[in-house]
Design a binder for these strands. Structure first.
Lengths: 238, 238
DNA sequence: CGCCGTATTGAGCGCTCTCAACGAGGGTGG
DNA sequence: CCACCCTCGTTGAGAGCGCTCAATACGGCG
């Protein structure tokens, strides 16, 4: 894939996904140190729940390695996956700041490790550091924009288009950082992918099949690899 | 409608709508004064556009009276309405803080007046006031939660359910503040209501018709009045 | 080998969309 | 004042998409 197209696609995708929206790397050393001094590491095995919908938030989390899915349960029992976080991403801070209970459930998709920072510690550092406040406002505002874009996708596009877009997003999520290849191994299972796309498993499988027949993707076991980025990009209509 | 039920419904609806999410009333007098000193009032006649998708944000707006719709255009020409702002609401601050271009277009649904505050002035006050920063972080974080809930709605529910929910939201938007009656006159036209619900005009009309036949709503001319809040609430499944 | 969770395929139905036509109401110009 | 037009709302018919239910493969693990 030529580099111009690659950039164009990544650029568009970034309007619908906020991997590393909030990075503590941009923080001055003092604030970062202060945050980290009370932190501890939590291990979450695959399928374990980090927090559940309805719980009061206890602190914020930074994902060190693994994958965490953020999902919401419907009254009818169906599950919608909203985000999948990967290494380096910060989460759990928004309900803390907004005085909400957790609106979502966080579950490990793979064995994961997170750094946990206590609510009080986090709020204390924020209060003292305008720099940190500004960083958070910037990140959440940007993420707000991204969610608005997503609502549009869900309200207006069919499953083919949505899946095309989410595969491109997942490729970003699953590709190995620092590696030149733009192709990631998407290891999410069909049920979760259906919940992410907002459809049933059967429909998801059928759509994947047509993508395979068109050589947009290929599969090995349960893993999915994108073979034609441009086609998916065109299909997603973004 | 008994007061217990009314509260339950309003409470649930507030998870999907953020009327008055950010209110400057909670600001200390000095900050508010500083913000307002450079402000000016802009009149926007019905159907006029306040700002368009893709423009760089110039400042923030406080709606004094009227109604402003926030919409996004799709590549296929369809329009999704995301919010409808009413008196007292603040908007346009998020792209400013997130360094984004406007992701949406703001159009007057009725003759409106807004207070406009310059970008620089707004950012200056924020920088100086941790109190203001905290207020904004709280508001945007909460709004983020609401958008997450909405994505779920669009991804998982059919048109009947969505329309039931949005009618309840619009009732809050259109009811006269301070008036005891919980019933508002929803004056939005069919095309906009379809764009808000995320469906076609024809489908919208049909769904409205079944609501009328079930006595959930009644219409007078183009206005819609809710007659059975409980039924719509149950239907919305929230 | 049998079990269980996951993936895939098939069939049929219902919902939603699109295209098309018609109706109602308001405004304008003759 | 009336005829016309334009916008908005409503109704009908047919096609296609996406859902559910049901059955069948597949693969790891005891």
């Amino acid at each position: 894939m030529n580099v111009f197209l690659k950039n164009k696609i990544e650029n568009s995708i970034s309007n619908f996904n906020f991997n590393s929206g909030l990075s503590l790397d941009a923080l001055p050393v003092e604030e970062k140190g202060e945050l980290m001094e009370q932190s501890r590491i939590i291990k979450i095995p695959r399928k374990a729940v980090l927090y559940s919908e309805g719980e009061p938030p206890k602190g914020i989390y930074i994902l060190m390695n693994g994958k965490i899915k953020i999902s919401q349960l419907n009254f009818d029992g169906s599950v919608q996956i909203l985000f999948i976080y990967t290494t380096g991403e910060v989460f759990g801070h928004r309900p803390l700041l907004g005085n909400d209970k957790h609106p979502v459930t966080a579950t490990a998709l793979a064995d994961s490790e997170v750094v946990f920072i206590e609510k009080d510690q986090f709020l204390k550092v924020i209060e003292r550091s305008p720099r940190f406040s500004a960083l958070i406002m910037q990140s959440i505002s940007h993420e707000f924009t991204i969610l608005v874009n997503r609502i549009n996708i869900f309200a207006q596009r069919g499953i083919k288009e949505r899946l095309a877009l989410f595969l491109l997003i997942l490729n970003e999520t699953y590709k190995v950082p620092g590696q030149m290849s733009e192709e990631g191994e998407i290891t999410i299972n069909r049920n979760d992918l259906a919940g992410y796309t907002g459809t049933s498993v059967e429909n998801l499988v059928r759509t994947l099949k047509t993508f395979k027949e068109n050589n947009y993707i290929r599969t090995m076991g349960k893993s999915i690899y994108i073979t034609d980025f441009e086609a998916l990009y065109a299909l997603s209509g973004v």
